[in-house]
Design a protein around this nucleic acid. Sequence first.
RNA 1: GCCGGGGUAGGGUAGCUUGGUUAUCCUAGGGGACUGUGGAUCCCCUGACUCGGGUUCAAAUCUCGGUCCCGGCCCCA
Length: 414
Amino acid sequence: MIQKPRGTRDFLPDEMERRRHYEGILRHIALTFGFREISTPIFEETELFVLRSGPNILNELYAFKDKGDRDIALRPEMTAPAVRMFVNGMSNEPKPVKIFYFGQCFRYERPQSGRYREFYQFGAELIGNKNPESDAEMIALAASMIEALGLNDYRIRIGHIGVLRQKLADSGVPKERTAEILQKLDKKSYDEAELLLIDMGVSDLARQEIFDLTETVGGKEVLSEVPGEAGEYLRSVVEILERMGVRDIDIDLGVVRGLDYYTGMVFEAEAPVLGAEKQICGGGSYTLSELFGGEQVFSTGFAIGFDRILLAMEKEGIGYELKGIDAYVVPASDAVRGEAYSVVSMLRDAGISSDIDLMGRKMAKAMKHASAVRAENVVIVGEKELSEDSVTVRDMSSGEQNLVRISELVRFLS
RNA sequence: GCCGGGGUAGGGUAGCUUGGUUAUCCUAGGGGACUGUGGAUCCCCUGACUCGGGUUCAAAUCUCGGUCCCGGCCCCA
């Protein structure tokens, strides 16, 4: 027996139906925000991802040489492909460019709860603008999506990477070593960060101020403690969000994204029910296009971990009711099978999802099967009814039956 | 990559400690009881010991290794 590769999943019809349903909700919300869907290749030149995330990600990429000796990698995320696409073919579109995507990504990691080697991301990018308005728009989109899915317990935290970067620079941390420090702070490894800072000759006072900054957490009121333009900026973001009806946003300057290209506001959402892998959304403002050969363009984007958010919903007990087909056509005897095929064909032509017994079952078994496939109605085609150009329609939830003229059947079932 | 727990029909399970006849039960699937009416009942059928090596007269059971799953660490763009 061949097994599926480690860290991958098959989605059986019931699960797939549920996933499509929620996918549809996310698409719908993005469209209502004026975003348009894109699709990019599942694989890209490996270089694209190395440029974005640094050489270390090679360890976690599905990367290989193709038959033309090209270095290729399965995409581990979709921001870089989206920005590449923007640089290649969308740079003259009206600004801001608002795009979203949904698709699978691949990372060679050890699978665990909420982490797979093939997983699905839903993301959006707003390209070509940098101000609180754009950042608020993206946070509002993310919040609306999570809300629309029905997840109850989640938190959105907003930070600002510029504050820390500025503070580190002012404290004498060399520019090329800020990433190193930020990574430690991101991981909350304060002891290690402290050692590094001491090593760089950062004073006791400055170190304390740095740690105080990362621990600036709370509501809008804590923004008064945030120095410089960043505090003002975040205040604007929060005020716009309030106008957009997005509340319950936490300020947390400890939200640090490890990568260099984030320039200002950063945000994350997490669902506590998930345990170790609880982050369901992450994003911020960035510039990437210049890395891919374009001009520098400011953008804000985020990605939602689709699998994780579905897992969180499941853990919250949010059920999804499976749909069935509209009608199941049952011939009452073999003599009228031909007429039954005509009836099912008529229903299908009219867009009514319908099925018919293909196994030569007797009526009772066919009824049972109709029930098993969650048919809403059974259309019984029998000699008695046909003599009146009619069929019997049985409502499977109520058991109620009606004699319906074949010419009226489509209307009756619509 | 590291630590720990697991793997018995499609799904859920009993058996494993203490090796021994035809591997238990529920459910699902197919057929029948039931010749024009589902979700009830009864009967029949299909279907499993994760893979490989070792110990043994004999392995689902003991043992070693692989593999996959689960929880956590590392990582997390």
